[in-house]
Design a protein around this nucleic acid. Sequence first.
DNA 1: TCTGGGGTCCTAGGACCC
DNA 2: TCTGGGGTCCTAGGACCC
Length: 431
Amino acid sequence: MFALVDGNNFYVSCERVFRPSLNGLPVVVLSNNDGCAIARSNEAKAIGIKMGQPYFQFRGLEETHGLVVLSANFALYGDLSDRVASLVAGLGPSHEVYSIDESFVDLTGLRCDLEERARRLRQRILQWVGIPCGVGIGPTKTLAKLANHVAKTAERKPGSYPEKLAQVCDFSRLNRDELADILKATDVGEVWGVGPRISEQLKEAGIRTVYELTRLDPATVRARWSVVLERTVRELQGTPCISLEEVAPNKKEIACTRSFGKPVEGYKDLEEAVTEFASRAAEKLRKQGSVAAQVLAFVRTSPFRKCEQYSRSMTIPLRRPTNDTRPIVQAALMALRAIYKPGFLLAKAGVMLMELTPDTVSQGELDLEDQEPDNGKLMTAVDNLNGRFGKGTVLVASAGLEGDRRNWSMKQLRRTPAYTTRWEDMPIARA
DNA sequence: TCTGGGGTCCTAGGACCC
DNA sequence: TCTGGGGTCCTAGGACCC
């Protein structure tokens, strides 16, 4: 049996912890550059603001509806997230932090009344941290997720589901018919793993509710859709296919990307941005104890504007895998030089580190030939200073062309050719 | 004027091999 | 009409998640 504990309207709830006067008001939290809504209070949802909706489309509701609009404060949310997660961990023997506002808990072996235990946890989190949560309980992670959806929706929209399921919903307590009724009342698109595309395809095939999805034969689902959806169907039928991951595996890619507040055209500005992205990414890389073998940089115009589109990326193989900021910045700038073309209003750029492997001591010490003499110590010192005095205290200066010529071997590049790809469909998830 | 920033997994199809 | 057969590796692209 699994539980999913999830903070309601999480970023908004975090803001309300420190500003209780926001309770009862429509509140949204905006993304970087105040671009679009990434969290909405129930009141904001009620006046029709959508997840991911651009701010300019609902600007003005401050005056007409008393909407409160806030810029995101991710440091605050991360801190409260840690506090919630540590309380959630007490619910069962093992737990997985799934996202900033969600944790799964394995309840196997607990002999107590699970619903009662969950309600007490919910109360404790509310009292000690100030964040209201929903809890879903079910025999698989997918069912726990669905139960959580029921718990939150029953609270927010009275009448949508039986009132007793509000806040905490334990599927294992329901009899066959009760569960069937709930699944029949739930749109197939609410299922974890069924996004907009699959949802549309299912509906075309006459599958509109979760109940109908659970009635499908897994083999048929696999043949017609995919093994991923098959797994989802099996999980809905009560067969666990997705296990708890207590320790987060190391990242396989590390990215740092930003949309610009205003379109950028000049090379100098891009160079500055890409240098910072590469430095931040390298920092994350060292934090997880990995080295990267490839560096990708990309630039793109805004897909939302009707201007001429330009979207390019380039991957540069590193001479040897490293987590040293300097060669990583140099590689990113080398890629930028190759893909930059003047005359476009660029809306976004970014750096990604790929082909990550664990940083082993031997890697640094056995191969002394082209090792920067103070590599490890210098980078550790940089990270410590930035940690103590704030991000950006110590920066790596953008390297000029001379530096690149000195450090980059074209022979190496030919052996492992760099390649360009279009960057038209950078995924931006929308709820 | 103005549209986030991260990630993961799966699969089809091409390249290449014998 | 009809165009071997089987395997591996790699990449692009699609789909999903928060």
